[in-house]
């Protein structure tokens, strides 16, 4: 067996794949959010940014080449992440065929126990998100290229329900990241007692930023609220999850 294959055979190998793909996805989530912040600068800026993505890598690459490369990599990472998650959870459920009648968590938190369900929620969301803003089939008023309008209208339509879906999904995503971002270091063996506190803090920070940042967008679209006000909101929501 070749090295890579035998590596992937092991539970730890799979975990490493989860961590690497997860890290890549996380990187994407953060960059994606940063890009979307352009919405606060107004229609022109956001549309310009969306246009600019197509010409990324110009002149070395032709239009949309880099974008597609990136999309392919992203898709691959995403699929690998999901496929491996399924394998791991299969292994785990095989590990205990007879369940306990009574089981109490001593250490686990909501986020860590919700990785699979939360992940599935994120998956469903991503599908919806693509249909909503990328392909437009789940959008009543989609115009290719008019990103700003698509977003603002997309959140407002159906009495703002899409916005609510986005907000809930972002809470799931941030929970996933809260446990996942710390996990990356643990899984890759980059953790130790002396760093653990810092890494936990870092993970919390990223999770909170991703949540607030992303949630601020639909809220802005709905109420034209500024991110500062959203932060206050979010803090009270986050409090509910004990972050």
């Amino acid at each position: 067996m070749t090295g890579i294959a035998s590596f992937y055979q092991r539970s730890i190998g799979k975990k490493v794949v989860m961590a690497l793909t997860g890290a890549f996805l996380l990187f994407y989530v953060v960059v994606h959010m940063w890009g979307n912040f352009k919405i606060f600068l107004g229609q022109e800026q956001l549309d310009h940014y969306a246009e600019g993505l197509k010409t990324l890598g110009d002149p070395l690459f032709a239009e949309e080449q880099v974008l597609w490369l990136f999309r392919i990599a992203l898709l691959a990472a995403f699929l690998l992440h999901i496929y491996t998650a399924m394998q791991l959870s299969h292994m785990a459920s095989r590990g205990r065929p007879v369940a306990y009648k009574q089981r109490k968590d001593v250490q686990a938190n909501f986020a860590s126990r919700m990785m699979l369900l939360g992940g599935i929620a994120v998956l469903l969301f991503v599908i919806y998100h693509l249909m909503h803003f990328t392909i437009g089939v789940a959008h009543s008023d989609f115009v290719y290229g008019e990103v700003f309008n698509n977003v603002v209208r997309g959140f407002q339509e159906f009495m703002g329900i899409p916005a609510i879906i986005y907000i809930i999904a972002m809470i799931f995503l941030s929970m996933h990241i809260y446990h996942g971002a710390w996990s990356i270091f643990q899984t890759l063996g980059l953790n130790g007692p002396q760093y653990n506190g810092v890494l936990r803090g870092l993970a919390t920070l990223i999770a909170v930023v991703v949540a607030i940042g992303n949630i601020s967008i639909p809220l802005y679209a709905l109420f034209a609220l500024s991110p500062v006000e959203v932060t206050g909101w979010f803090q009270s929501i986050a409090g509910l999850f004990g972050f």
Partner: peptide, 13 residues
């Protein structure tokens, strides 16, 4: 892995 234990999800229980 061979003897049937599950993988780790870094939960810490």
């Amino acid at each position: 892995d061979e003897v049937g234990f599950g993988g780790c999800t870094n939960i810490g229980e």
